[in-house]
Computed example of a mutant assay.
Amino acid sequence: MNIKTYIESGIIEKCVLGLATPEQEAEFHYLREIYPMLNVEMEIVELRIENLLFEEAVLPPDHVKDRVMDRIGQDYQRWQERPASNGNGHTNKPPEYISIKPGWNRQITVSIWWRCAFIGMVVLTMALAASTWYLHKQVDHLQDVIIHNNYPQPPISR
């Protein structure tokens, strides 16, 4: 297979945009495992499409941003004016706002302690599954022994 021709066929763009048929997506996924160059090409296509979207994006009018920022300021002032405790023993927490930044954050960082906890939970789950299987086999064996001892086989007559 000529990989250059495959890349130029536009199938990567179709897959990234979700316009490919399931067969085309399956084929592309399979070929990505064989040809690592397709992964690089897919990232290039994703970035190119993202850049095009940002270049052609229509920004909202400036007065919309001003109104939103005023509203946030009013909410924050109201929060500061509230008493520290609302009578139930609960303290008021400041409002949380999400920072929206353009672009994709392509990395997720996880603390080493979360990784250790995850590995520990996997090991514990496997140990519990193994012990459950072992105990189930023991119970089956004991049931067979009890049934055999309580109901002996009749003697075979000749």
Score class of each variant (00 low, 15 high):
132 T>M: 10
109 T>D: 13
34 I>N: 01
158 R>H: 07
83 P>N: 05
126 M>Q: 11
23 E>Y: 02
93 K>T: 10
146 I>K: 11
20 A>E: 08
91 T>H: 06
79 W>Q: 10
3 I>Q: 08
158 R>D: 08
77 Q>Y: 09
102 P>K: 04
111 S>I: 00
76 Y>N: 13
139 V>T: 14
52 L>A: 08
79 W>S: 07
32 R>G: 02
80 Q>N: 12
96 E>A: 12
57 A>M: 06
133 W>N: 07
97 Y>F: 15
22 P>N: 03
106 R>V: 06
137 K>M: 14
11 I>P: 00
105 N>P: 00
117 A>M: 15
64 V>L: 11
85 S>H: 02
93 K>P: 03
125 T>E: 00
114 W>N: 15
78 R>Q: 14
32 R>I: 01
6 Y>Q: 05
7 I>M: 11
53 L>A: 05
13 E>N: 06
8 E>N: 09
20 A>N: 11
107 Q>T: 14
16 V>F: 01
109 T>E: 11
99 S>F: 06
116 C>N: 13
32 R>E: 14
59 L>H: 05
32 R>T: 09
55 E>Y: 04
15 C>I: 12
57 A>G: 03
112 I>R: 11
6 Y>I: 01
75 D>Y: 04
25 E>V: 02
41 E>P: 02
58 V>W: 00
22 P>I: 01
1 M>S: 12
7 I>N: 04
123 V>E: 04
71 R>N: 12
95 P>N: 07
16 V>Q: 03
92 N>I: 08
16 V>K: 01
133 W>L: 13
81 E>D: 15
66 D>G: 01
131 S>A: 12
132 T>V: 02
136 H>Y: 14
152 P>D: 06
149 N>Y: 01
118 F>Y: 13
44 I>Q: 10
145 V>I: 14
90 H>C: 05
3 I>W: 01
61 P>K: 11
88 N>E: 12
50 E>K: 07
93 K>N: 08
6 Y>M: 05
79 W>D: 09
28 F>E: 03
147 I>F: 07
88 N>P: 03
138 Q>D: 14
122 V>Y: 08
125 T>Q: 02
151 Y>H: 14
119 I>S: 06
30 Y>M: 11
81 E>S: 15
20 A>P: 00
110 V>C: 11
51 N>Y: 05
115 R>W: 08
61 P>D: 09
78 R>W: 07
141 H>V: 07
36 P>H: 11
80 Q>L: 15
124 L>A: 15
63 H>A: 07
102 P>Y: 00
100 I>L: 13
36 P>W: 09
51 N>E: 13
60 P>I: 01
54 F>H: 09
99 S>I: 13
157 S>L: 06
96 E>C: 04
88 N>T: 08
136 H>T: 15
95 P>D: 10
22 P>E: 10
136 H>I: 02
101 K>V: 15
158 R>P: 04
155 P>N: 07
132 T>I: 05
125 T>K: 07
96 E>W: 01
126 M>H: 05
133 W>P: 03
143 Q>W: 10
37 M>D: 06
115 R>I: 10
158 R>I: 01
12 I>H: 03
128 L>S: 10
9 S>Y: 00
126 M>R: 00
118 F>L: 14
50 E>V: 03
107 Q>H: 13
140 D>C: 06
111 S>W: 04
